[in-house]
Design a protein around this nucleic acid. Structure first.
Lengths: 228, 228
DNA sequence: CGGATTGTTGACTCGAGTCAAAAACGGTGG
DNA sequence: CCACCGTTTTTGACTCGAGTCAACAATCCG
């Protein structure tokens, strides 16, 4: 049973992750044999800044946040790893340490491939290397967007965008915030207090409705988009 | 003569750019035939947001800034392309438009490879795809750093870091700022006025010395590093 | 049911943005 | 080399968004 579960997870990784798309069955099977998997409970760290980074990490199931820590101790969240996402830098450079942290936000299954295996894989399977380049390109575009927004838009505007994106992503009118407000704050580069205030403010202005503690409904998407 | 100059530039690109490192002479020659080149004067745009993006751009000589424009009209600089740097997103996705601008800061020579050619190149030359993955990985790390700094550190601290990096990069005690202060401002996510004030303040505190209008000398690197 | 973590609200502060005007700079052509 | 014009930089006065600190309320979870 344990064995079965293990195999299941390894294949999941290969099936789930876009970078392994359009590879042949054979190739996918080969990859599955190179993969090891780990399970993390809520709050556990997948890696920490300073750790030696020697493998690519793929989220097979669950959710984890990746963040950096400023010298001041303030966190900046860089991204949320969802099912199918991977963390890249790790596997790319020789002799480099992580400069960020990854922490599980729920029970999370993770697959790893060592740098060596992964580099060999890219050499042997150009298809996959191209997929990888594409995935990294998207990540760069997303990061550029984040950088620009964080410096040019007000917190209210960033929060409004975040709500719109979250709602669109979940594709339902009434949606539950997938993160604690504390985490939303570090994602948007602000503080929990400010998030709390802005949510109240948006509610009072009739753009959103608070359904429960962490469930909201978008009432006026147009106006939300125009903030700032 | 014009012809010679042309060929020279095409080969320059292939020689200069890290992503073409450790390829064979043959492969480099092939690449050189795929490349077209362009020249831009100071202030000209290499591309603008909304342009169709269908080629990879490599800077053979010169300097250009890449920036996004917020709805408010405020610029956020994303990076400076130096000799040997390339702008990636362009070549990676089908049917995507640029969401940023690139503007020459001096006379600048640029080489281009079309998306199709570049994708084929990666398929044929896994070496190169791996190089590309590495280059993108570094860019991601740099962007993550920029995002974190911009949200967690004060302008004074960001400016201090910028001065230290610039001085280190140029490797000389007295160094000339390679950007106009206006541009430094959009790079650091602030305004020219604030840059001006902070430079004065750092000078008064004895950490730097103003040599001429845009030349400075680092007097106390340790203290600069500790700001914030 | 506690105890701990998370969220809310109020009062206060301050860094940095804005606007405006003057000064300095840099390139151009005579 | 100098006078001129446009751009860039500096300086001052003012404003305000959002951070901080602190106390309290609500949730979550074992």
């Amino acid at each position: 049973m344990v064995k079965l579960l293990h195999d299941h997870t390894a294949e999941d990784c290969v099936e789930l992750v876009p970078i392994f798309d359009n590879l042949s069955k054979d190739e996918k099977n080969t990859i599955a044999t190179l993969v090891t998997h780990h399970h993390y409970k809520t709050g556990e760290y997948l890696f920490s800044a300073g750790d030696t980074s020697d493998s690519l990490i793929i989220v097979a199931h669950g959710q984890a946040k990746v963040f950096q820590m400023a010298t001041s101790g303030k966190e900046q969240m860089l991204r949320i790893l969802q099912t199918g996402d991977f963390d890249g830098e790790a596997a790319l450079f020789t002799n480099s340490d992580h400069n960020s942290f990854a922490q599980a936000l729920m029970k999370t299954d993770v697959c790893q491939i060592s740098r060596g295996d992964f580099q060999r894989l890219m050499q042997k399977t150009p298809e996959m290397a191209v997929n990888m380049v594409n995935a990294l390109g998207k990540r760069i575009a997303q990061l550029e967007q984040q950088t620009t927004e964080v410096t040019t838009a007000s917190v209210e505007s960033r929060l409004a965008n975040y709500l719109l994106e979250t709602s669109a992503g979940l594709n339902q009118e009434v949606f539950k915030l997938p993160l604690k407000k504390k985490d939303i704050a570090t994602y948007l580069g602000t503080t929990p207090e400010t998030i709390s205030r802005k949510l109240t403010s948006l509610t009072k202005q009739g753009m959103i409705e608070k359904i429960s503690n962490n469930e909201f409904k978008i009432l006026d998407a147009d106006r939300l988009m125009m903030i700032d």
